[in-house]
Design a protein around this nucleic acid. Structure first.
Lengths: 232, 232
DNA sequence: TAAAAACAGGTTGTCAGACAACAAGAGGAC
DNA sequence: GTCCTCTTGTTGTCTGACAACCTGTTTTTA
């Protein structure tokens, strides 16, 4: 129940229904209007405070914080259904992943490379087959780029990409998305991944970064060309 | 008080003192060991749940979640004191900002450019002077890159960079950091920003992205050369 | 008259206790 | 041996209370 309320409140704030500096209703009135006890409201507001969405002062009240005061980054589930939002998430991922690949090219060890080879082989092997192979391919692809993130030696990049992939996996299990992923399941796309792998093997920072960028630009193109996603 | 406890618990989890799948102590025992009421513990755990750090089941208990289940990205304040962590944050920022600049080069409007020019002029004007000018320069620089993020047309990039800059501003107000920033306050560094601006003006995606990457690689170098930061 | 002090009301922060909802295991009935 | 019930423990929610704190008002005092 507290999940619902914190989600509703944060949506109100993020959508701009409540503007910065404005005062929230008191905990008691919120409890009454939501039909729950004050403890539940408190837990919800506590979450908002932790994310830097609101700021409360004892004896006064809780106020909407400045947008510049956010202390956490999260992607709301609703964003995965709109094509435009999906493309923007893809762009965000492009920036981080290309940076990760460049760093991986520099810092990779032979062990890192071996892990990447294994993941790549798994992608290659699951190139033909039924749904099971497609599922396997998705997992292998995720593993491939996670290995790259690990090889970058940057903890934050690893955490961020891991979080992003998890969110995408969680939310994009709809049928439309399963289909969208099939378009990423071809020999042509595999060649794009191969270019990344070889650039990292050759320890060519620029080439690795560029190869990732190239892959994602084509992936964005493929996503934009699809007709089965809502545009609103 | 709930801030402290949630921070302590999340640190325990992130540092790996508690491994995934492990069960947390019961709320009652946590309340006793921390010397607070159960409501405080509940608010703290509620935050951890929201971040995907723990997962609780009614009637059973709360368990440490898999690292892949994280649903939010945040940077702990402690990370700003170690040079290595600072460099990693800089790398993260490099990836996003270079992506933002590339997108801005493509999507920028004349109004966007005008804002960037204003911010750049402000940087240029505050190149000489006392501490006030240095402070002004920092603000102008932040504004400059924020304009770029806005011009990218990508909401997530804007939010992410804004969050990152806020965190950096909040945490790096120490003396050591003030000094570190002075090294970014020179005509040479300004020229690096100028290159970014001109590439965006010319709508040259690759050049803009490269210019950002170049600036940050030199900034990382300058940071690495500094001797007044702890290495642990 | 003006400043200072006490008061009153409201809000958040914390505490204590209780009960409902739920899960897992123990023990007995068949 | 299998099923059922019972017990126990934990989380989720509710309720009431009080402390800590802020704000505006009123009263007192210089």
């Amino acid at each position: 129940m507290t999940d619902d309320i914190s989600q509703k409140l944060s949506r109100m704030i993020l959508e701009g229904e409540l503007s910065a500096g404005e005062q929230l209703p008191t905990e008691q009135s919120l409890a009454e209007s939501f039909g729950v006890a004050r403890t539940v409201i408190r837990e919800a507001i506590s979450r908002l405070k932790h994310d830097g969405l609101v700021d409360s002062r004892q004896g006064v009240g809780a106020f909407i914080a400045e947008p510049s005061a956010r202390s956490a980054f999260r992607i709301s589930p609703a964003c995965f259904e709109k094509r435009q939002k999906l493309l923007e998430i893809l762009q965000l991922r492009t920036g981080i992943t290309s940076e990760a690949a460049g760093l991986a090219a520099v810092h990779r060890t032979d062990a890192d490379l071996q892990f990447m080879d294994t993941a790549y082989d798994s992608m290659e092997r699951s190139l033909s087959g039924g749904d099971a192979a497609a599922e396997k391919h998705v997992l292998a692809e995720r593993s491939f780029y996670q290995r790259i993130a690990e090889a970058s030696g940057n903890q934050y990049i690893l955490e961020f990409l891991s979080m992003l992939d998890t969110r995408i996996d969680m939310e994009l299990r709809s049928v439309a998305m399963k289909n969208a992923r099939v378009t990423e399941w071809s020999a042509e796309v595999l060649a794009e991944h191969k270019a990344v792998l070889e650039a990292i093997r050759a320890q060519d920072e620029t080439a690795a970064s560029q190869a990732v960028r190239y892959h994602y630009s084509l992936a964005a193109q493929r996503l934009a060309d699809r007709a089965d996603l809502a545009d609103t």
